[in-house]
Design a binder for these strands. Sequence first.
DNA 1: CAAATTTTTTAGGCTAGCCTAAACTTTCTA
DNA 2: TAGAAAGTTTAGGCTAGCCTAAAAAATTTG
Lengths: 241, 241
Amino acid sequence: MSELTARTPLSEAQEDYLKQVLLLGSGGAGMGKLEDTLAVSTQDLADRMQVKPASVTGMLKKLAELGLVEYEAYRGVRLTEAGYKVALEVLRHHRLIEAYLHQALGYGWEEVHAEAEKLEHHISEAFEQRIAEWLGHPSHDPHGDLIPSAALELPQTIPNRRLAALQSGQYGMVARVATQDQDSLNLFAHLGLKPGAQVQLLEHIAEGSRVRVGKERYLLPISLAQVLWIHLEGDSYVDPI
Amino acid sequence: MSELTARTPLSEAQEDYLKQVLLLGSGGAGMGKLEDTLAVSTQDLADRMQVKPASVTGMLKKLAELGLVEYEAYRGVRLTEAGYKVALEVLRHHRLIEAYLHQALGYGWEEVHAEAEKLEHHISEAFEQRIAEWLGHPSHDPHGDLIPSAALELPQTIPNRRLAALQSGQYGMVARVATQDQDSLNLFAHLGLKPGAQVQLLEHIAEGSRVRVGKERYLLPISLAQVLWIHLEGDSYVDPI
DNA sequence: CAAATTTTTTAGGCTAGCCTAAACTTTCTA
DNA sequence: TAGAAAGTTTAGGCTAGCCTAAAAAATTTG
């Protein structure tokens, strides 16, 4: 209805806002269809964009005029079909770049986010295509996040669980490390907790979650246990201590 | 004397201005030491930057305050030591990216300029290092331009000659294709006139320069003959017609 | 060497995106 | 359900980088 499909190229800031509306609206979990997304509050956007709420309001009005979001005062914002496509495009760039840096240039999986964040707005479709081909059209980036397809669609996501929601004894495979905080990423990398790693929940205590990774046992603060998504495989007995 | 070595990160526009001061100040030829560069006029910069002279004046004043250029009203501008380093860094990024796109991702040598132009300001030192390593620390980009070393030094350049300055019968190897105009690049690529190609000058006529490339004969407009730099190898007889 | 031409500068404006402070809703809670 | 807290908007400002028009300086030329 309201899409002005007229394509004046978007600014970096505009693309970032759209991306964050998508990420915030999809909840922590996978990322369903557009219909499943939630409205996002100005405040949440302000936090993510490291910007004051007043600045967000201004940008949302602009994006609404462009037909990229539906914005209703005090009731949050959500993407239109057009805005959704833009957001997915940016996300595809980001995640393809991460995968490429990791696999082609030997970056550590915990290092790729920052570099991709800068590059995602500046690569051409040709570049996107070439690295996608080089990578063999991967479905996931090095953090375990889904990469939107070239047609800008997201495959259905397998339901995983946060480590914080596991029960004592359950184990599984790290499916996603859903944080962008560099310190957290470094810590996860140091502990070997990257996508694909086996991990077992020992117990939840007040300070966090005790886990076993290989022969090591660690205590993960709650905030970290919240961003580690586990693909469950079963239960098992664990030797005490 | 006047360098404020304080490193507030430069804007994209500032980096571009510095790069153009370097390129314009070095004349068409190689690119000597800083001492050998000429002062560059506001007008020339305006042409290159696709901007009005008044805008250039403003930027030059800012760069002068930052200690990156020496600027004297009506007498042009030249880089300071600090500005020279910045310009070389940008140039290194640009040319390494060109080489990488060509060699690692299969871009045509005539396609790489535009993509590199966008990326050069957005890559980290880590990225620079990794692609330089992947490439084996190349000395030239796909257009035959010198790549500044990691220490930001330029090796001495071998004296070549413009095609337009060759005499009938002389032949040699294309050393550099010194244009950024996409149409010209496409034409050169179409004719096989890329760095490394053998070419012979048949004769200069009013409309341009007649050349032989392999078994083909072409007429190059003067403007194109001016940007094709040839490494001379000798003379030889050519069949008429 | 003075007049014409070119180049450069000044002055005033514009847009994008951010800011703060203050004024407003709306929502939560006792 | 009233008052407090949270969230949102308005209004006015700032910087970067560009613009135009007109003034001023330098250079070229007859």
